[in-house]
């Protein structure tokens, strides 16, 4: 739908905006329509609510963006989210310092992500299958360590408050966490060689390998990033509820993938970025909130979401077609002749 790849920036954000003016125009029209027809949307309390709702899926989706940029996918994020939440709850109940328990929970996410990366990059199993398998296994692990029941823990303290439901500088804590994670994601993807390598692998893994890109290591890291953001989302969820639940993951994987796709990152890899994902996560939250406000039933909401996903992907295909026609228009005519002659 939108295209936030670093590749197409000349003057950074300005060019991105110019290229995606249709999407942005639609979003602005939607916001104006909201002001007219559903003024309740702009109540400060409601806006904060939207921000909070976008946070957890948003955090997961930022990590997911790293994986999808390589042309992969991570279905196991929901189960990692659950496992890290219950890990933290159990450790705190056993008397561990909260800060340390959170660190351990995040490390669990890193470990699970590295496992995904290992299966994908070293054993060369398709990411869909690899993370489907770990999703099932990790869910099992979370159920096993909790005996299937939610683990309540004492979530009083500034740290939990910040991560869960509190407000800082007038903004919900989780939303701040999301913004920080998103900022790190944007910076890493744009300004670190690691980020560039992700785009390279997603564009063509053979070209990446032939350019000397350490593909195995890069993939391992990408899945580790997805694991750690999922774990962070798990910590946030548990902090908010005061419970580490083995079923907390729910459909987080699908929500995150939806946010990434709506944000313009191609499932084929190599195109997209974290800024788009932020946009996608917020758009999804706005949509849910809007439907709640105008009283659409939760069942119908799912139907609408499905339609939105299809529309978003349609937009993405249109954008790709535009690019291809750009490409066709440019090269000198002799070139294609020779290409064809030599075939």
């Amino acid at each position: 739908m939108t295209d936030f790849s670093p590749s197409i920036r000349s003057n950074g954000v300005i060019r991105t905006l110019r290229r995606n003016w249709i999407t942005i125009a639609i979003f602005i029209v939607m916001l104006i329509a909201l002001a007219v027809f559903v003024p309740a949307f702009y109540q400060p309390a409601n806006l904060l609510n939207v921000a909070r709702q976008s946070s957890i899926v948003g955090v997961v989706a930022i990590g997911m963006t790293f994986v999808i940029l390589t042309g992969g996918i991570d279905l196991s994020v929901g189960s990692i989210l659950a496992l890290s939440g219950v890990t933290m709850a159990i450790l705190i109940n056993q008397g561990m310092v909260p800060g340390l328990a959170i660190v351990v929970a995040l490390l669990v996410g890193v470990g699970a992500g590295l496992l995904n990366g290992l299966i994908v990059a070293v054993l060369k199993i398709q990411p869909f299958i690899a993370t489907l398998a770990t999703m099932v296994a990790i869910t099992g692990l979370a159920l096993r360590v909790t005996n299937g029941g939610p683990q309540a823990f004492n979530n009083i303290g500034d740290l939990f408050n910040f991560l869960g439901s509190g407000q800082v500088l007038g903004l919900p804590g989780p939303f701040l966490v999301f913004l920080i994670v998103a900022a790190i994601g944007v910076l890493v993807l744009r300004y670190l060689s690691f980020g560039r390598f992700l785009y390279a692998i997603g564009g063509s893994s053979e070209a990446a390998r032939l350019s000397g890109v350490p593909t195995t290591r890069t993939l391992l890291l990408a899945y580790a990033v997805s694991g750690v953001t999922a774990a962070l989302a798990g910590v946030m969820t548990a902090s908010r509820l005061g419970v580490g639940a083995p079923t907390a993951g729910g459909l987080a994987n699908l929500d995150a993938i939806t946010a990434v796709v709506i944000g313009g990152t191609s499932l084929m890899g190599g195109v997209g970025g974290a800024l788009g994902t932020v946009f996608g996560a917020v758009l999804l939250a706005v949509l849910s909130n809007l439907m709640n406000l105008i009283g659409i039933s939760p069942f119908d909401q799912q139907i609408v979401k499905g339609v939105v996903i299809v529309l978003a992907v349609l937009f993405a295909i249109q954008a790709t077609r535009r690019r291809i026609s750009d490409r066709r228009a440019k090269p000198a005519p002799q070139e294609s002749v020779r290409d064809r002659l030599l075939r």
Binding site: S5, S7, Y199, A200, G203, S204, E206, A207, A208, L210, G270, V271
Partner: peptide, 8 residues
Amino acid sequence: TQGIFIAL
């Protein structure tokens, strides 16, 4: 497919 990154 092997020499350049076409989308970059």
